[in-house]
Nucleic acid binder design. Structure first.
Length: 218
DNA sequence: ACCCAGGGTCATA
DNA sequence: TATGACCATGGG
């Protein structure tokens, strides 16, 4: 049983995850721009398929905002095919890159305060709350806590949230209960995802770990 | 054969 | 505000 204040329980869950899985070094990408592309492509899609699409973009020498904006639409959609929803994602990626270039690129965007940058990202058709927060945390290194389906499921199973709270409500809760720290938020979200994907299925669980009831195999 | 994957938009009530 | 339809490939 997990006891204590919610803040303390959130810390405990993180420590258990980290002890089990070790540092994840997220986001798996070579540049901030690649993080942003991956954030769009991974919408409701297995990461392994996103990797194939990003590989195609690199292979074509088109993993840049200008290249994506200028490339033929059907060609772009073809590169994105393995990641699914390729017509929609080609449009979303192009929307984002157009906006990205219009604003002046990474350095300019990174000079904005987090609130302004978040609203800017959300103004792009195809960039929703989670995608924007992925970009803010992993490409711009802002202390924003990313909420996804895994986060809802884990903490719902742990009895710490009901699960049907709105996105902003949950994000505000995590950011209020935890130390506002980019490194912590980075690692915490990565741990939640890796826990849901692999490790809780293949690694044994420690007896006193609060994750037992949060594991899909428990 | 069936289910879901690191969501978001749009139409409808 | 809150559902439902839609997007689409690939791995278990």
């Amino acid at each position: 049983m997990v006891t204590g204040s919610r803040a303390r329980r959130l810390q405990w869950v993180f420590e258990c995850l980290y002890a089990r899985n070790g540092p994840q070094h997220w986001w798996p990408a070579q540049t901030p721009f690649e993080v942003m592309v991956g954030a769009v492509l991974t919408q409701n899609t297995a990461w392994i398929n996103v990797e194939k699409a990003i590989f195609n973009l690199k292979q074509a020498g088109s993993l840049s905002a200008p290249a994506i904006v200028e490339s033929d639409f059907d060609l772009l959609a073809g590169w994105l095919k393995p990641s699914g929803y390729f017509n929609i994602k080609a449009r979303r990626l192009r929307n984002f890159c157009q906006w990205y270039l219009q604003q002046g690129g990474y350095e300019v965007l990174n000079s904005w305060d987090t609130h302004t940058l978040r609203h800017g990202l959300l103004s792009v058709n195809g960039v929703g709350a989670e995608t924007a927060d992925d970009m803010l945390l992993y490409a711009f290194e802002r202390p924003v806590f990313v909420i996804d389906a895994y986060t809802r499921r884990l903490f719902s199973r742990l009895g710490m949230v009901s699960g049907d709270e709105g996105y902003e409500h949950l994000r505000a809760m995590f950011e209020a209960e935890l130390p506002v720290d980019v490194g912590l938020f980075n690692e915490y979200h990565a741990q939640i995802v890796i826990h849901a994907k692999d490790y809780c299925k293949t690694k044994p669980l420690c007896e006193h770990c609060p994750l037992v009831s949060g594991c899909v195999n428990a």
